[in-house]
Design a protein around this nucleic acid. Structure first.
Lengths: 194, 194
DNA sequence: CGTCTATTTGAATGTACTCAAAAGCGGTGG
DNA sequence: CCACCGCTTTTGAGTACATTCAAATAGACG
């Protein structure tokens, strides 16, 4: 079934009884987006927390000059959303757009609230996910401050080889916080070095 | 009492019965550190989640060249810790050092676990705190990528005027990801512009 | 007043950016 | 099958932003 990957993901963190699994399934809905479609749009209120079942998304933001800044990618077994917007019901800061045909499991705000109440451990699940996400985000800030672009690119390649394959280079440059031309030059240099 | 600020902080997010407040108080311990003392040391396992009652701390990390990189500051009513280390019991990536004489309320890992079990809503409290922290951290990444140093400094000054007053300039430079000399030049420029 | 730390200033350098243009790479249609 | 189109990547020249190193100044504290 479509939700298999979600269930097995969740049970890596908490145990679910059969009944709880049923409750979970009642509160989640699968949806497929085509390549290019938006799951979240900057300015709209974000309605869902999304778990990627298949496909690939980018989360980005457009600055005043219309430049795109990639915040993160999400592939199978990742969560993606504009959490700030979902919780506060304020307009989203970010866009989440599909880079491929993408299937997600969606939780509305209300579904999450009910799950927090009805499934003990669900709140813990999200606390743990958030702890990891926060720690990773902080590491990324330091990495940007302490390491030159070439090494950041190498680390990215090591850490996310799948994403490197699936995503156009100019988006990776944006994620790394450098221009696409500069990333191209870094790559040329790396080829030369080998 | 010393814990007043902690209680009133917590009750901004969740409601606590008298009994729950008592349980909370049983699981927390106050401690005062002198200026310069370390609450967490890079390489040691982090033992506490800390809530700052008074004073000011910096969280930083030393890279291979021995350079210091400031990750965050914490003043009254902020949390500070190396969460990743606390939860995983792995060596901490960061140092937390007091920039002033600082009083903190400390929760051990075990105390937190018990509080999660015994005080419904406590898990929610940390989920909410983490959501905010994560959202802020992501915004900071984008800010670093999309905005030149001068503006980043101005935003910092606007957002954290207290910290700007209490913390030496070279640490703010480090937090912003620029050299202390460059921040000094930015400031000179700002004075000239007024 | 002297010492220690923090900040400022200046010159030379480096890293990364912009703009512009060319080359590569799929896919589509004639 | 190839010519063309749109999109991505590469290349090059000139520039801007930020760094390093070194030295001078300013502040804080005993």
């Amino acid at each position: 079934m479509e939700l298999t990957s979600l269930i097995s993901y969740i049970t890596r963190f908490i145990t679910l009884s059969e009944k709880e699994t049923d409750i979970l399934i009642e509160h989640v809905k699968c949806r497929t987006y085509q390549k290019g479609q938006y799951i979240v749009q900057q300015g709209d209120v974000c309605r869902y927390e999304n778990f990627v079942i298949s496909g690939c998304t980018k989360t980005f933001f457009l600055d005043e000059d219309g430049r795109e800044h990639v915040v993160m990618f999400a592939i199978e077994n990742w969560w993606t959303s504009d959490l700030g917007s979902l919780i506060s019901k304020q307009p989203a800061d970010y866009n989440v757009q599909c880079l491929e045909k993408t299937m997600v499991a969606q939780f509305t705000y209300e579904a999450l609230e009910r799950l927090y109440d009805e499934v003990p451990g669900f709140e813990r699940l999200f606390r743990i996910i958030l702890q990891k996400a926060f720690a990773a985000s902080q590491k990324r800030i330091i990495l940007n401050h302490s390491v030159p672009a070439k090494e950041r690119y190498l680390k990215f390649r090591m850490q996310y080889p799948e994403i490197e394959q699936r995503v156009p280079q100019y988006l990776i440059a944006s994620y790394l916080g450098i221009s696409k031309q500069f990333l191209s030059k870094i790559r040329a240099q790396l080829v030369y070095e080998e």
